[in-house]
């Protein structure tokens, strides 16, 4: 790998720009392919190959192109997880999700909950969820999980999440709690979006402990992301 290409690759990664490194395994020629252009073009790639590479980049897949001549390594910015409610489950979930390469932000306007001591090394945000969501702008690489168990905190986050492209939305609470939540959100005219909320949250694993519930939430998130 040449120095200029390596630097361009690292620049794209630091700037959170998706980029694919294409290598001709015989000889080692390399291109960087971005969503709309390419640079360092040592390899002359056909339009169908470029299309294939960009399809792989969109879903962050790496592998050989058909024909086994070229290897594609997709580099995409980390997926994000926005956790609303700095509660006990959030403490476990934030650590586990970071280990799965999510960039985690915990949002809670109650400063007694969102403390650096309870969430070491986790990005904390003490804004109200509607303000935080307006700033953080969830997209198709973002999951939003509400755990506060308080409609004043959870509902504004869910409303914002439902208006975004978030690939996963989950809300903690029993069926009964969720039923009331659905009524409130229906009153706000969000009826046709409500099936996007995973509630009760998490896969049914049977665990009751806070870390066990975090596992079930993370498992559901992984399933949603990969379509498993």
């Amino acid at each position: 790998m040449k120095g200029a290409l390596r630097e361009a690759l690292q620049r794209a990664r630091v700037d959170k720009v998706p980029v694919a490194l294409v290598t001709q395994l015989e000889g080692g020629a390399q291109n960087l392919v971005y969503s709309s252009d390419q640079s360092n073009a040592e390899i002359s790639l056909g339009s169908s190959q470029l299309e294939e590479i960009r399809d792989m980049l969109r879903v962050a897949r790496s592998g050989m192109l058909p024909g086994d001549e070229f290897f594609v390594r997709s580099y995409v910015p980390p997926y994000r997880l926005l956790i609303v409610g700095a509660v006990h489950i959030a403490q476990a979930l934030s650590v586990m999700a970071a280990q799965c390469d999510y960039q985690v932000t915990v949002i809670d306007p109650r400063r007694a909950f969102a403390t650096a001591e309870r969430f070491q090394g986790v990005e904390l945000c003490a804004e109200w969820p509607d303000e935080a969501m307006a700033r953080l702008l969830p997209d198709a690489q973002t999951a939003v999980v509400t755990l506060a168990h308080d409609p004043k905190i959870d509902d504004p986050a869910l409303i914002a999440a439902l208006g975004s492209g978030a690939f996963y939305i989950g809300a903690l609470g029993s069926r009964r709690t969720h039923g009331k939540r659905l009524e409130r959100l229906t009153d706000l005219g969000l009826e046709d979006q409500l099936q996007r909320i995973n509630a009760p949250i998490g896969l049914k694993l049977g665990g009751r402990g806070h870390a066990e519930i975090a596992v079930s939430i993370l498992a559901q998130l992984i399933q949603a992301r990969y379509g498993g």
């Binding site: 690759l9 970071a98 390469d101």
Partner: peptide, 18 residues
């Protein structure tokens, strides 16, 4: 499929080269 929080091995490699 993997995303790249791993800023990481390639960054470390850059430091070695530098």
């Amino acid at each position: 499929m993997s995303s790249d929080q791993s800023i990481d091995e390639l960054a470390r490699m850059g430091e070695w080269l530098a």
